[in-house]
């Protein structure tokens, strides 16, 4: 199939970028989106041009590294999918596809489609330590956790930090990411102990990084590859308001 690409090209943080046109004529519908970009890059290398830089790692939808805006939607047209799990069969022959980096002031573009998501790392760091023992694996029955609680905590822990929630949010809010991290630890007995100071610190860090306000449009939940529920955001708000008293 034939695909016309409009890809955001930007040398580095300082230079202004622009969309560049590329025409691919030999795209296999079974290629993943990233494989399609690989074939473009092979061609660019052969032509001695600078290849398009983009983040990727596992290519099986669990690492959270890949992530670009495809035709104006985070990770492309399918809901709850990472970019690497999107395949060219989701597009039609002759389609024009816009590929842009995730945009937010807190996610500066490093090069082409690569953005700096270290703001997420700093939010996690602000959460500090948990009292979980880092020695040998503790005896499983020494700390009893109900099945429902364990499942709920794991649902939150499933967040891979890809940044799609921020990219798709009209306010570039990191509420879903931060909330997932806060809820994950606040639910478990190991994390409950420091939950109050953790929510205060992580929310403060989220604000310091320059993310916007959550408007509860719930767009993040639609795009999230891990289907992290927006109810985690409500839970974060609850934890935050409780921590004030």
């Amino acid at each position: 199939m034939r695909i016309q690409l409009k890809i955001w090209r930007q040398e580095n943080r300082a230079t202004p970028g622009q969309l560049a046109n590329y025409d691919l004529t030999d795209v296999n519908p079974d290629m993943s989106f990233l494989e399609m970009l690989d074939t473009l890059n092979e061609r660019l290398v052969r032509q001695r041009e600078r290849p398009v830089e983009f983040d990727h790692d596992c290519r099986e939808g669990i690492c959270g590294q890949c992530g670009v805006m495809i035709n104006g939607r985070a990770h492309g047209p399918l809901p709850n999918t990472t970019t690497c799990q999107l395949h060219m069969r989701s597009f039609k022959d002759g389609d024009i596809i816009y590929v842009e980096p995730f945009r937010a002031t807190a996610f500066p573009v490093k090069c082409d489609l690569k953005v700096d998501r270290s703001a997420f790392d700093r939010i996690i760091q602000a959460g500090g330590f948990t009292s979980a023992s880092t020695g040998g694996a503790p005896e499983a029955n020494s700390m009893l956790i109900g099945h429902d609680v364990a499942e709920a905590a794991f649902d939150a822990a499933a967040c891979i930090g890809c940044g799609a929630c921020v990219a798709t949010c009209k306010n570039s809010s990191a509420a879903l990411f931060t909330a997932a991290k806060i809820t994950h630890l606040a639910l478990l007995p190991q994390g409950k102990i420091e939950s109050r100071q953790r929510v205060r610190r992580m929310v403060r860090q989220m604000d310091t990084e320059g993310f916007g306000h959550c408007s509860n449009t719930e767009a993040c939940q639609v795009e999230c590859p891990q289907q992290i529920s927006v109810l985690h955001i409500a839970r974060m708000n609850w934890e935050y308001n409780r921590a004030l008293f």
């Binding site: 939607r73 945009r103 009209k170």
Partner: peptide, 19 residues
């Protein structure tokens, strides 16, 4: 504040489809 947080706009924006 949200305008500031958004930074540069998307050239092609279809995010409205998810809310």
């Amino acid at each position: 504040n949200n305008r500031r947080a958004n930074g540069k706009r998307y050239e092609y924006d279809h995010r409205g489809a998810s809310s």
